[in-house]
């Protein structure tokens, strides 16, 4: 299969890589770039663990053709923290015990971040809606929803 050049922004850094035609973005990120933070779950777009943010919107990287990412801005969990300083969402997940096995956590964080970028003051229903495409086996979702609301409150406080 022919290799195609692809340039995009990954967590604010210009990234250039050769990808296979038909390759999906999850493969490109994990195998090509080496960013292992998007998780390979169902690879069919039902579990949400591979969620990344593309131009401010949450997107399932397993269902995203890599070539469509040309010139786009992609964000992954790897870009969330500022060095050792965790993102407010990561801190809230940690404080609120919102992870058990942790496999869904990356996708949850990105879905949550996309929500808070577009709606800094979400209701509980907004949060549920935002993560409704993300499956969690361990937590019963409640601590995750609480953590996202907690982070939203703290992020609003910081902005003001």
């Amino acid at each position: 299969m022919a290799k195609m050049p692809l340039q995009f922004s990954l967590n604010g850094r210009d990234t250039a890589i050769f990808v296979n035609g038909g390759e999906n973005m999850l493969e490109t990120l994990r195998r090509g770039v080496g960013d292992m933070s998007p998780k390979y779950g169902c690879a069919q777009g039902t579990c949400g663990s591979c969620t990344v943010i593309v131009d401010g919107q949450p997107q399932l990287s397993c269902l995203t053709l890599s070539q469509t990412m040309e010139g786009r801005s992609v964000e992954t969990v790897s870009g969330l923290s500022d060095g050792p300083q965790l993102h407010a969402l990561q801190q809230a997940f940690m404080d609120g015990f919102a992870a058990q096995c942790g496999y869904c956590t990356g996708g949850m964080l990105m879905a949550a971040k996309a929500l808070l970028m577009n709606n800094p003051n979400p209701s509980r229903d907004d949060v549920v809606e935002a993560i409704s495409g993300n499956v969690c086996r361990c937590t019963g979702y409640e601590p995750i929803i609480d953590a996202i609301l907690d982070a939203a409150t703290k992020m609003r406080g910081r902005a003001m």
């Binding site: 058990q100 086996r137 361990c138 937590t139 019963g140 979702y141 409640e142 601590p143």
Partner: peptide
Amino acid sequence: QQLIGGAWM
């Protein structure tokens, strides 16, 4: 945490 998650299981 385990009780809440386990109940949903």
